[in-house]
C-alpha cells in the first residue's frame, strides 16, 4: 500500500513536470482574411500571452522605469493615446507622431506610420530605444528583468527556461499584442447577421464603400498600404513619412493607412494627430487640392458629400466601435502579476 502511494506521488510529479503550456488559438471571424503573422514561429500559449501582457504594462522597459507600452497605448483608447496629438515619452518629452491604436496586428506586416518595422516581433525595439520614448536598450532590459524576483519565474513558466533573452521578450510582447483582436463591433454583428443597420447607417455604409473602401478596406478597414492623403507638411515637424526610411523620392509623404475601427476611442486622427474630430477629417477629404499630383490615386477624384451624407457616413463609422474589445478585462493591467512584483521588490 505504501509502495503504491509512493508510486502515485512519483508518477504525479513526473507527469506534472511534463505538463505543456496551454495552447491558444487566435479567434477571428470567418470574413477576416488569413493573418499575416507566422504563428508557427511563435505559437500562442497562455503563459506567453500573460508574460507579454506583464511586459506591456511594466515601466521596467524604460530607462528610468517610468514609461510602459501602455503609457501611450491605453486599453481604454483602443491602445492609442486619446487627447495627445504627439506621443509623450520619458522625461515628459514629446515625439513627432501620434501613437497609433493597437489591434488586429496579426493582419499587418509593416509597422509604424512610415513602415520602418517589418515584423511585429521587432516593433517594440523602436519605442524601447527611442530617446524620447523609453530611452533604454534591449540589452539592459534583459539585465533588469533577470534581476527581479518576478520575471525569471514567468519566463521559466512561459519558455521553459528562466534565462531571459531579447528574443524571448520581443516574442512575448508579440503574443499579447496578437491577442488584441477587435472583431465585435456593430458592423461585425451586422456581418454575422445578428443585427441590422439603421437606415442612416446603411446609407453611411454605401457612402463608405463608394468613397473610402479602396484605402480603408473592409473588414479590417485598412489595406495597410502607404498613401499620400494630401495633408500639408507640418513645418514644425517636417515629417516626410516613408521617405525617411527608404530615401526613395516617390515615397515622400506616404504614411501608413490606419484602420477605421474604434475611432471614438482613438482620437485625435492622422499621423500627427492634427484632427480632433471626425468632422475635421471629412472636411479634409472633401476639400482636397486636386492639383496635387502626389495624391494617392483613389483620392484623385473629388469626394463630394452633403452635410447629411457626412452625418450618415459618421453614423456608419461609429458602427466600427468595438466596446467589448476596449473594455475586455483580458487586455487590462495584470494586477495579479505586476502588483505581486511590487510587493516582492
Amino acid at each position: 500500500m505504501k509502495l503504491k502511494l509512493i508510486c502515485i506521488i512519483v508518477l504525479t510529479g513526473f507527469i506534472s513536470s511534463f505538463v505543456v503550456d496551454e495552447m491558444v488559438e487566435l479567434v477571428y471571424p470567418s470574413y477576416f482574411p488569413s493573418p499575416a503573422y507566422n504563428f508557427s514561429n511563435n505559437q500562442l500559449t497562455k503563459s506567453k500571452i500573460e508574460l507579454g501582457r506583464a511586459l506591456f504594462y511594466d515601466p521596467i522597459l524604460s530607462k528610468d522605469n517610468s514609461i510602459s507600452c501602455a503609457s501611450c497605448h491605453s486599453p481604454f483608447n483602443a491602445f492609442a493615446h486619446t487627447d495627445h496629438d504627439l506621443s509623450h515619452g520619458i522625461d515628459d518629452q514629446k515625439g513627432t507622431r501620434n501613437a497609433p491604436a493597437l489591434f488586429n496586428l496579426a493582419w499587418q506586416s509593416s509597422f509604424m506610420w512610415d513602415g520602418a518595422i517589418n515584423h511585429l516581433d521587432m516593433q517594440a525595439l523602436a519605442p524601447i530605444a527611442h530617446p524620447k520614448e523609453m530611452n533604454e536598450t534591449i540589452e539592459n532590459v534583459v539585465k533588469k528583468l533577470q534581476t527581479t524576483s518576478l520575471y525569471p519565474d514567468l519566463f521559466k513558466d512561459a519558455c521553459g527556461d528562466s534565462k531571459i533573452t531579447g528574443s524571448k521578450i520581443l516574442k512575448a510582447l508579440s503574443q499579447f499584442q496578437l491577442t488584441l483582436v477587435s472583431a465585435n463591433s456593430k458592423y461585425d454583428q451586422m456581418k454575422m447577421g445578428e443585427i441590422e443597420f439603421s437606415e442612416q447607417e446603411k446609407n453611411g455604409y454605401q457612402l463608405f464603400q463608394k468613397n473610402c473602401n479602396s484605402c480603408h478596406t473592409e473588414p479590417l478597414f485598412s489595406s495597410f498600404e502607404f498613401a499620400n492623403n494630401g495633408l500639408s507638411v507640418d513645418t514644425t515637424l517636417n515629417d516626410f513619412g516613408k521617405f525617411t526610411i527608404t530615401k526613395i523620392v516617390s515615397d515622400s509623404l506616404l504614411f501608413k493607412i490606419p484602420s477605421l475601427r474604434n475611432l471614438s476611442f482613438s482620437y485625435p486622427y492622422m499621423h500627427d494627430g492634427r484632427f480632433k474630430k471626425l468632422n475635421d477629417v471629412l472636411k479634409h477629404y472633401t476639400q482636397l487640392d486636386h492639383k496635387n499630383k502626389l495624391l494617392t490615386k483613389p483620392l484623385q477624384n473629388p469626394i463630394e458629400l452633403t452635410s447629411n451624407e457626412k452625418t450618415d457616413l459618421i453614423a456608419f463609422l461609429l458602427t466600427l466601435d468595438d466596446q467589448s474589445f476596449v473594455f475586455d478585462k483580458k487586455h487590462r493591467f495584470p494586477r495579479n502579476i505586476l502588483l505581486q512584483n511590487t510587493n516582492k521588490n
Partner: peptide, 9 residues
C-alpha cells in the same frame, strides 16, 4: 537583438 547588431528605429 540584444547583441547590439539590430537597428531599432
Amino acid at each position: 537583438p540584444m547583441n547590439g547588431m539590430y537597428w531599432t528605429w
